[in-house]
Amino acid sequence: MIYNQTQLPASISYQFEIEVNDLHKSFGKNNDILKGVTFRVKAGENLVMLGKSGSGKSITIKCLVGLITADKGCLKVFDIDITKLDYNQLNKIKLRVGFLFQNSALYDSMSVRENLEFPLRRHSTYLSDTEVENAVTEVLKSVGLLDAIDKMPSELSGGMRKRVGLARTLILKPEIILYDEPTTGLDPITSKEISELILSIQKKNKTTSIIITHDMNCARLTSDRIVILKDGVIYLEGTYTELKQSENEWVRSFFE
């Protein structure tokens, strides 16, 4: 079942689902974070973004969903430059792009069920109560958390919160998912489970993903390609194996 009504006309096709060209962002004077970030992500590809803390990885993906406005540059999602869209047009793009926050950002005042129903009821108003219930159950099953359906976010562990956050992202059936440090703060076993979940979702739903992580196991498991951000630009890109064997000591230090 497709819950997104917004589809591009069938005649439009594109090689890259995400194209970022010369992205600049600064916060105040002499505080340039992004100084011309350029990269592309193909449909169905899992791109892992590495870089030191504060290098601008989160800012890059937040620019892609309009949470942060870019100072300069072209941000194409589904071949549409989102920097030129108005609020309503951007919302139509947002419906097709999921975002998993670092701390999951679950709505504290709502139960797990209500967290999942919240976006669905607002964007798929044509669905009956039974259909909404089925969609919630189905997506919770896919992340293995059906038992927690009536729990409040405060009753969930870190790993469970990530899964519910992921379920909330998946319920709108996004074509692109942006993950902001999905395994941060989790134990190695749960981190591996989340990484495997990301991979299985990508395979099942054929989604395109950008995954920001410091967890090299997560990068190894999920990445088709890795880009490394340094000094506000893409410093290097390659596969996990290529970068691991890089002659550059700084790059290798990520893998040690």
Binding site: K62, V65, G66, L67, N91, K92, K94, L95, V97, G98, F99, F101, Q102, N103, A105, L106, Y107, D108, F118, P119, R122, H123, R168, L172
Partner: peptide, 10 residues
């Protein structure tokens, strides 16, 4: 980031 979560859900 709960307000941001609403924003990204359109």
């Amino acid at each position: 980031e709960q307000i941001d979560a609403m924003e990204v859900s359109a």
